[in-house]
Design a protein around this nucleic acid. Sequence first.
DNA 1: GATGAATGAGAATTCATTCAT
DNA 2: GATGAATGAATTCTCATTCAT
Lengths: 216, 216, 216, 216
Amino acid sequence: MDTLSPTPRPHRPSARRKEARPGELLEAALALFVEKGFAATRVEEVAARAGVSKGTLFLYFPSKEELFKAVVRENASRHLHDAFLEVAEYAGTSAELLHEFIRRWWTQYGGTPAAGLTKLIMSEAANFPDLAQYYQDEVVQPSHELVRRIVQRGIDRGELREVDLTLAAHLIVAPLVQLVTWRFSLAPCCPATLMPDPLALLDMHADMVVRGLRQE
Amino acid sequence: MDTLSPTPRPHRPSARRKEARPGELLEAALALFVEKGFAATRVEEVAARAGVSKGTLFLYFPSKEELFKAVVRENASRHLHDAFLEVAEYAGTSAELLHEFIRRWWTQYGGTPAAGLTKLIMSEAANFPDLAQYYQDEVVQPSHELVRRIVQRGIDRGELREVDLTLAAHLIVAPLVQLVTWRFSLAPCCPATLMPDPLALLDMHADMVVRGLRQE
Amino acid sequence: MDTLSPTPRPHRPSARRKEARPGELLEAALALFVEKGFAATRVEEVAARAGVSKGTLFLYFPSKEELFKAVVRENASRHLHDAFLEVAEYAGTSAELLHEFIRRWWTQYGGTPAAGLTKLIMSEAANFPDLAQYYQDEVVQPSHELVRRIVQRGIDRGELREVDLTLAAHLIVAPLVQLVTWRFSLAPCCPATLMPDPLALLDMHADMVVRGLRQE
Amino acid sequence: MDTLSPTPRPHRPSARRKEARPGELLEAALALFVEKGFAATRVEEVAARAGVSKGTLFLYFPSKEELFKAVVRENASRHLHDAFLEVAEYAGTSAELLHEFIRRWWTQYGGTPAAGLTKLIMSEAANFPDLAQYYQDEVVQPSHELVRRIVQRGIDRGELREVDLTLAAHLIVAPLVQLVTWRFSLAPCCPATLMPDPLALLDMHADMVVRGLRQE
DNA sequence: GATGAATGAGAATTCATTCAT
DNA sequence: GATGAATGAATTCTCATTCAT
């Protein structure tokens, strides 16, 4: 698209490439770090996947470790802000909101390459404790807060029972996290039949949560 | 000494002596592989933690990779056989069985060091596809089969609704797997307050599952 | 413009324009090579200090090594020719000549940035034996010859004892060389108090030489 | 000597080698650093010259830089202490003491491989300012102090004129330092005829110093 | 059996040099 | 002519593996 549309001053090819480099490298690095882990990924592989040479990578990131940190920072907390707004404005029932929330989580994060970040953090937390803390603060905590608000809203509306919000949030989030963890760990190795259809699983999950929490 | 004493179930009599030291090495290796990942763990660390020298490790395991495989094989499918027997013989309600099953899972696996294996497999599946397949066959599949039997038993007894057994099993297992994954990834890095009490979480999970699946 | 104007001694008319920028590069390179050594100096630093880009440097010098050689050739044997003439024409006593020679050496070479060349050659001689030989032939030998002539002149005039000219030249030159070596090695690192005033040192040196060599 | 004398428990060969390793590596490193400079010397060369592999070097020194620092510390201030004692107890004339001091300096340091350290420090001072300071404090300062004492002793005995001790020390030391600098820089590259016989040069130097400083 | 010194293949990083713009 | 992004050969350093004792 970009290459075909006639623009007044199309940046010189090399300039356009230069601007795209970090993004391409981050994308390649995310995929490889997710697949093989930080230590088992060679920077040369990352560079090759991004279509550049080893040396070029170091033009944009001073070390493999900084590349890793940039990958995490780049992919953390992308859509979280929007989700907060939507929940605050939502007008339907809690059952509808939960189904909607979970489905959107899948289309906007869980089903995208960025979801590999979740598995990556799980795998490397002990080797990068500061990043783990960052992820905890920027992604985990806000996500749980969002889910707690959804549940609290249902309680306030008389649709859901009064329950421990923290535990409920963990139980609502767990299958989502589990789904992406599997998507990037066992799923690529093992027969496709083992993985249930994500949307069917998520719909049943939303249904189970609603049944499990509803006021009787 | 050990090799002569008649014990009820000696794994393989001739190998018992040899397995005394390997046991310590496997234990050390499990802990370190879980914490740092396969590539980031140095064999010298494993040996040191087991109280032997680097050379000794290679007396028992021909390579780091074989050590890893032994760790997985040693820790996979420990209590699964017993669980099958117990479910088959269980006499109480489905609600009781689910609570009992989940609680025992925690005391016999989820809360033990062996549970690190789950996180380890998640992290290293792509680097060791044959082990991932082995784990899938020996642990994941049987576990899901066991859970499906529990649900089927509830349906047969008229206590639970008819649901997709595969999806139900995934949703029942997901929070358990998620719990151990966190126990070995973010939990060691981040404030204790973030982790809810495992038993409280698991009890609520069992309760939610029962409410979500019960016949109305 | 420059290339057309007839000047008294244009080095090579056609090359004058080209040599404007190389001059800055050579100056920058001399300073950095002296400070850090050939291998530890990055061409990018040289270019930056000369106010041009890395690529531009290679427009004027085909390689880092050629740049180094140009630095040496540029700075070797600058004032030697004049000194020979002055000694030949000198009319005063040997004591006056020695004092004068040494003071001029300081103002015209030893105290200038060009003196860094001496330290540079000391440091890199083994890595550039052909340059070392060039320096030996073009600078060291003529300098010693000049000093030998001064001593011979003193002997001929009956002011100085008959001594081994070669040894005397070495002993007269050594403190000069030593002074610039220190100026570019330890002096920049260590408290100024350690460095004696160069002119006081050189005056005492001239005085000691005269006393050491004079006819009794 | 050691290897020939029959000792009760000759260490096992490997143990004897192990103990000798650091020394062999330091010796090899000194020679190569002196010849080519720190940056231009490859650790593999050092290892090869010491008869071991690259990896072995890192068993004894954590980095190339630490190896360099160890080389300097190992070779600095070897014979300085003895020299102080000998000067304090010396009974002869100042002329004899100066000749003796300079001759011994040559046999015990200037003429040995350890003298390369002097050139090495000159070359690398700017890149290792802390080592330069260390050398200044541990070697240069004490050496000059020693020489000042010799001159002061001569003044006290009425043999030498009153002169600036600091300047005198510099002028006495300069040709010695210059001699070793040349020994390890231009001398290996250029025809032997250029280098005067060190002992003849040093004798003339001592003679010139005595003549230059003596009371008239 | 146990040790740990030694090895060397492999990975991260640097930097002189090239070349399209 | 000038630039600086890109390259890849070269170098430091790591660590699984071997083996003599």
